[in-house]
Amino acid sequence: MEVASAIQLAVAPAFLLTAIGATLTVMTNRLARIIDRFRVLNEVRSKLSNDDLVELNMLRLRAKWTHWAIALTTLSALLTCIVIASIFIGTEIQFNFDQFIAFLFIGAMSALILGLISFTREVTLSKNVVKQ
């Protein structure tokens, strides 16, 4: 009966893990596009205008923010996995990991929040590409 209870407790973090995975897919796709554009501009570096050089610097900055977004969101996924494992380990060895699990979950949510803030910063920077 306790395993069934552990499974019920682990369902919410498992769904969270799925959402984090989808978010990471979006972030890595954006990073790939940034890198592709950077390579295109870098190949013709000698022929670049001042606007292109500004764009190159902006791409570097966007890549930095996207990197942090991915790193922090990945940390959130890792901590969420540890939460799920801790639920099952605690059930198996009959030990109360409640405070540890709460600490891990707070850490996972904090990392996710910081990752999403970093991602939002990158998206904000990308708006500068569209000239008005």
Results as ranks from 00 to 15, higher is better:
residue 3 V to T: 09
residue 4 A to K: 09
residue 6 A to M: 02
residue 8 Q to S: 14
residue 8 Q to T: 14
residue 10 A to M: 05
residue 11 V to A: 07
residue 11 V to W: 01
residue 12 A to G: 05
residue 13 P to R: 09
residue 13 P to L: 11
residue 13 P to Y: 08
residue 14 A to R: 02
residue 14 A to H: 12
residue 16 L to F: 05
residue 17 L to E: 10
residue 17 L to G: 14
residue 17 L to C: 09
residue 18 T to H: 02
residue 18 T to A: 12
residue 18 T to W: 03
residue 20 I to N: 07
residue 21 G to C: 01
residue 22 A to E: 01
residue 23 T to G: 15
residue 24 L to N: 13
residue 25 T to H: 03
residue 26 V to E: 07
residue 28 T to S: 14
residue 28 T to Q: 15
residue 29 N to Q: 13
residue 30 R to S: 08
residue 31 L to Y: 14
residue 32 A to W: 13
residue 33 R to S: 14
residue 34 I to W: 03
residue 34 I to S: 03
residue 34 I to D: 00
residue 34 I to N: 04
residue 37 R to P: 05
residue 41 L to Q: 00
residue 42 N to E: 09
residue 43 E to L: 12
residue 44 V to L: 05
residue 45 R to N: 03
residue 46 S to H: 06
residue 46 S to V: 08
residue 47 K to A: 10
residue 47 K to M: 09
residue 47 K to P: 02
residue 47 K to V: 06
residue 48 L to W: 02
residue 48 L to D: 00
residue 49 S to P: 05
residue 49 S to D: 12
residue 49 S to L: 06
residue 50 N to E: 15
residue 53 L to T: 00
residue 55 E to Q: 13
residue 57 N to I: 02
residue 58 M to V: 01
residue 60 R to W: 05
residue 60 R to S: 11
residue 60 R to C: 04
residue 61 L to R: 13
residue 62 R to Y: 05
residue 62 R to D: 04
residue 63 A to F: 11
residue 63 A to D: 09
residue 63 A to C: 06
residue 63 A to M: 11
residue 66 T to M: 15
residue 67 H to R: 12
residue 67 H to G: 15
residue 67 H to F: 14
residue 68 W to I: 10
residue 68 W to V: 11
residue 69 A to H: 15
residue 69 A to G: 15
residue 70 I to Y: 11
residue 72 L to I: 05
residue 72 L to P: 03
residue 73 T to Y: 10
residue 74 T to W: 02
residue 76 S to I: 11
residue 76 S to M: 10
residue 78 L to K: 02
residue 78 L to M: 07
residue 79 L to D: 00
residue 79 L to C: 08
residue 79 L to T: 00
residue 80 T to V: 12
residue 80 T to C: 13
residue 80 T to Q: 10
residue 80 T to L: 09
residue 82 I to W: 11
residue 83 V to W: 04
residue 83 V to F: 07
residue 84 I to L: 06
residue 84 I to E: 00
residue 85 A to T: 13
residue 86 S to A: 12
residue 86 S to H: 06
residue 86 S to F: 11
residue 86 S to E: 08
residue 86 S to G: 15
residue 87 I to C: 03
residue 88 F to K: 08
residue 88 F to W: 08
residue 89 I to M: 09
residue 89 I to A: 11
residue 90 G to H: 04
residue 90 G to A: 03
residue 92 E to V: 15
residue 92 E to Y: 15
residue 94 Q to F: 08
residue 94 Q to S: 14
residue 95 F to N: 10
residue 95 F to A: 12
residue 97 F to V: 05
residue 98 D to E: 06
residue 99 Q to G: 02
residue 100 F to K: 01
residue 101 I to W: 05
residue 103 F to R: 12
residue 104 L to Y: 06
residue 105 F to H: 06
residue 106 I to S: 03
residue 106 I to Y: 07
residue 107 G to I: 05
residue 107 G to K: 08
residue 109 M to C: 10
residue 110 S to A: 15
residue 110 S to Y: 09
residue 111 A to N: 07
residue 112 L to D: 01
residue 113 I to M: 08
residue 113 I to Y: 07
residue 117 I to D: 01
residue 117 I to T: 08
residue 117 I to M: 06
residue 117 I to Q: 04
residue 117 I to S: 04
residue 119 F to T: 00
residue 120 T to L: 14
residue 120 T to N: 04
residue 121 R to K: 08
residue 121 R to G: 04
residue 124 T to G: 05
residue 125 L to T: 01
residue 125 L to M: 04
residue 126 S to T: 07
residue 129 V to K: 09
residue 130 V to K: 11
residue 130 V to M: 09
residue 130 V to D: 08
residue 131 K to W: 04
residue 132 Q to D: 14
residue 132 Q to G: 13
